[in-house]
Amino acid sequence: MAGASWRRLRRLDESLTAQPSHALVGVLRIPQGQSSPGRIVYKRSLIALAALVVSALLVYLDRDGYQDVQGDRLTFLDCLYYSAVTLSTTGYGDITPVTEFARMINVLVITPLRIAFLILLVGTTVEAFTETSQQAYRIQRWRKRVKDHTIVIGYGTKGKTAIAAMLGDSETTPSDIVVVDNDKAVLDRAKAAGLVTVDGDATKSDVLRLASAQRASAIVVATGSDATAALVTLTAREIAPQATIVAAIREAENQHLLEQSGANSVVVSSETAGRLLGIATTTPNVVEIIEDLLTPDAGYAIAEREVERNEVGASAKHLNEIVLGVVREGRLLRLDTPEVDAIEDGDRLLYVRATGGQ
């Protein structure tokens, strides 16, 4: 009965993913790989101005082919004026081409310049000031294509550091990561870093569905409280039964709650920091090595790979690499267990590798 009530309450907010793309602008934000609207207007205005100057020069070079209503010889200012009113299609008619050559230039050169001029100014204005439509299109396209991405719940210190590790340790790109948070200032920083962002409460199933949690390969729970982390993990596991869920908590006594909620791995941040502090009092260099191993873009890093065919049957202790453990059927085997003396086909090795910073 309690489980049914829980599911009913959770589904009260599941109208978000049913919204059209334009209604999600501001909630789901996809980074755009182009210049800002102001910069676009500035650059294209310069191009339009250049077109106006080219037109004025062409008219000035053939000024004898044009007639002023007053019968005066055209000056460069008259040519510039004529080009401006012609390109903008105002066309007062006080200056007109009268010779065949001037009219031919108008047809072959001035008219294409007029079209380009209008496209530049009008098109730029429409493009630059319809960000909502552009963002809606990007949202629609992203929702159709996104899969096997990583969702990070919370963009605080833990979430930001986790993302930095993912970007430094693999072929992951910022566009492969979705940040879910309800702090707009935090989301602005995530968007500036090139990350897809979702503004909402990750304890709500519809917010996670908007982030396409059902198609994610991994979900990192880096919230500020253990209670929120447990609720987010429970929600995420129901939506994404196959995803790898990693959660960070403050207190070790809550670890079993996260594991029962569906987390594959639980990191106790307070105890981990405490252990490092304790080690640093006697062997501070060990802390430096650990930091090095946890910073994948320089020095050394902990990595995982499949065993090679020629390694099957060998001992993990005698390989050329520094092996830390063997993963067999999802279970970690440490080097002090007898099973690692004979590597099996399908095993994966946890080892220390040199990174590009070496």
Results as ranks from 00 to 15, higher is better:
E304Q: 10
E259P: 07
V27Q: 09
S225D: 05
T125E: 02
N182Q: 11
I302G: 04
R141M: 11
T89H: 02
K317T: 11
M166L: 15
A202W: 04
L74C: 04
L319K: 10
K191H: 15
V312F: 04
D64N: 11
L28H: 07
E171I: 00
V85G: 00
R305D: 06
A190F: 12
T272N: 08
A193N: 15
V312H: 03
D68Y: 10
V327Q: 03
A162N: 01
A247Y: 14
D68N: 14
R11I: 03
V286P: 00
A342T: 14
K158M: 02
N320L: 07
Q260F: 13
D13Y: 15
L257P: 01
G71W: 09
D13V: 11
N254I: 03
T295V: 12
T86D: 06
G38C: 03
L333I: 15
W6Y: 05
V180Q: 01
V179D: 00
V232G: 02
I95R: 01
L74T: 13
A50D: 01
I289D: 05
G224C: 04
Y60P: 03
A128V: 11
W142K: 00
R309T: 09
D68C: 15
A218E: 08
L113C: 02
Y42R: 06
R334L: 13
C79H: 07
V186I: 09
E127W: 13
S35W: 11
L24C: 08
T124C: 06
L258P: 11
E171Y: 08
K144L: 12
T223H: 08
A216P: 05
G346A: 12
A164F: 06
D341I: 14
I115S: 00
A301P: 00
E311W: 03
E288V: 14
H318A: 12
I289T: 12
D188T: 14
V107R: 12
L77N: 09
L258V: 14
V122I: 15
D64Y: 12
S225W: 05
R353C: 12
D169L: 05
S225E: 13
A229C: 04
Q255E: 13
Y137V: 13
K147I: 06
K144E: 12
H318Y: 12
